[in-house]
Amino acid sequence: MLKEFGPNIWTVDGPVVTAAAGFRYPTRMAVIRLVGGDLVLWSPTALTDDLRTSIENLGTVRHLVPPNSLHHTFLGEWQRSYPDAKVYAPPGLRETRQDIRFDTDFGDAQIAAWAGEIDHAIIWGNRIISEVVLFHRDSGTTIFTDLIQQLPPGWFTGWRALVARLDLMTAEQPEVPRKFQAAFTNRPAARAALAQVLAWPTKQVIMAHGPLIHTDGQAFLKRVFRWLVG
């Protein structure tokens, strides 16, 4: 179900998916409506008839955005349903999803189709993942995927609960999981990208695997990345 998050931005909570080693994660999509009525779908989740109807009532699906090389499970079904939509490749995904037609690759240059409405930054320097972070100007919303997480107590059980606790996935506050912290081997590159993100006038934050942050978004991000940027 679509939930309004701010001016011209909505969230959709999708089904739980199972990743490596049996770890289960909730899924979340963001829908952004551009000035002309075109829609940007970030991290598309499972496509259902009801969701299709709700989204088409908002505007025209023109842009499909998988934000990193891990969030692509449902991308193919969206491309088949909206073949005219442009699909953007984050670093590393084009090589693993050769069944997807990618129209352009994310780089450091901003996307002309939504210039002035959405900014993006690629968090470079991580051995596991290079995440594309979006900033929606109209709502003051910064959108993260896997680099910030907080799953509720009891989400994992058994040995997975122990791993999740040690990894900070179930910490008392949203955090960068320790596996991603350790994977930042090029910290100057990461700091340069994060400087761009932290300069955005963030009011709200969306993350794929954690609570929605409605206030003091810039202060929230500075706290989350304090270990990296000081």
Score class of each variant (00 low, 15 high):
A183L: 04
N8I: 00
S81K: 13
A183C: 03
P66R: 03
G210C: 04
S130N: 14
G217E: 03
H209A: 08
G210F: 02
K203E: 15
E131P: 01
H63Q: 06
N57T: 13
A30G: 05
A189S: 15
G158V: 02
A121P: 01
V16C: 10
H136W: 12
G107Y: 06
T104M: 12
T185F: 11
R226E: 14
L93A: 10
V16H: 11
L58T: 03
T60F: 03
Q218I: 05
V229N: 09
E56F: 05
Q149M: 15
A208C: 14
Q173E: 15
Q149T: 14
I213R: 03
D105M: 09
I213L: 08
R127V: 12
F23H: 03
A208P: 00
G230T: 08
S81M: 12
V12L: 07
K203M: 12
F135M: 02
A20E: 13
A195R: 14
G125T: 01
I206C: 03
R187Y: 04
F102S: 01
G22K: 06
R223V: 05
T157F: 10
P153V: 01
H71M: 09
P152I: 07
A85L: 02
S139Q: 04
A19Y: 13
M29F: 02
L194K: 05
P152L: 09
R226K: 13
G125Y: 01
V65S: 07
G125A: 04
G217R: 02
G14M: 11
V132N: 00
I9M: 04
I9L: 07
E117S: 09
Q173N: 10
P26Q: 09
T141G: 00
P177H: 04
G116Y: 03
R24M: 11
G154S: 10
G14A: 09
G37I: 05
E175R: 15
L51I: 02
D99F: 04
L47A: 05
W200I: 00
W10Q: 03
K86D: 05
L134I: 01
M1R: 13
S43G: 06
T18F: 06
T145W: 05
A112Y: 07
S54R: 14
A113V: 11
G140W: 01
A171Q: 02
W78G: 10
N126C: 11
R191G: 10
R191S: 12
L58M: 09
G158I: 03
G107C: 10
P153D: 03
V16Y: 09
R97L: 10
V163G: 04
L58N: 04
G116Q: 06
